[in-house]
Structure formats: structure tokens, C-alpha cells
């Protein structure tokens, strides 16, 4: 699969990555090369193989329903770019 500039822009938008227009063609070339590498997978028929999501064949452990966390808002918001009245601030969201 070869990606063109419009593909790259679409992907960058989905991933919310700001990339300059100048950089787009280079990304297109590089990403296409990576996809070419990736598509070597197609050499093998996997239609009868079940997908493997985890290395270990184990099931989810369940946690007891207990409140174990205490308020650490000040600690957490100490590393936040912008807060006020305990809220994280972002540019105005219009619905």
C-alpha cells in the first residue's frame, strides 16, 4: 500500500499530529516504505490462524470493589499546564 499526501494528512489529523505541509511528502514516502515492509506478512496464509493479542493465555483478574485511592488533586495538578479552581483548562469547547 502506497500512501499519498492526502492519506498522510488524513492520518495526521486522526492522530492529532500537527505536521507541516513541507514534511508531508517525506512522510508519505517513509510510511509507504514501512507499509511495504509490513506487507511481507502477506506471504503467509493465516486464514486458519487465530489472532494472538497477548503472549500469555490467561484471563482477566478482578479487583474487589473497594475505594483505595485518596484525593491527591494538588499533587496531580502540580504538573498540569493550566488549572483553575481545581479544573483543567482547555481552549473553549463548542458543542
Amino acid at each position: 500500500m502506497s500512501l499519498d499526501s492526502s492519506d498522510v494528512k488524513k492520518i495526521a489529523h486522526l492522530a492529532r499530529l500537527g505536521i507541516s505541509d513541507d514534511a508531508v511528502p517525506e512522510y508519505a514516502t517513509e510510511l509507504s516504505r514501512i507499509l511495504e515492509l509490513v506487507e511481507q506478512m502477506n506471504a503467509v496464509d493465516t486464514s486458519a490462524v487465530s489472532p494472538m493479542a497477548h503472549p500469555q493465555d490467561v484471563v482477566q483478574r478482578l479487583r474487589p470493589d473497594e475505594v483505595t485511592e485518596t484525593d491527591n488533586r494538588d499533587g496531580f495538578q502540580g504538573v498540569a499546564p493550566a488549572t483553575e479552581d481545581g479544573l483543567y483548562l482547555v481552549p473553549r469547547v463548542i458543542e
Binding site: L89, V90, P91, V93
Partner: peptide, 15 residues
């Protein structure tokens, strides 16, 4: 929740 009251023209986020 997004709180749309005016915080310096910004939206406040309560998680």
C-alpha cells in the same frame, strides 16, 4: 465533564 462557564475564556475539565 466539560464545564463551559467562563474560565478566562476557557473550558474547565472535571474528571
Amino acid at each position: 465533564k466539560s464545564l463551559h462557564e467562563d474560565y478566562q475564556g476557557m473550558t474547565g475539565i472535571d474528571l
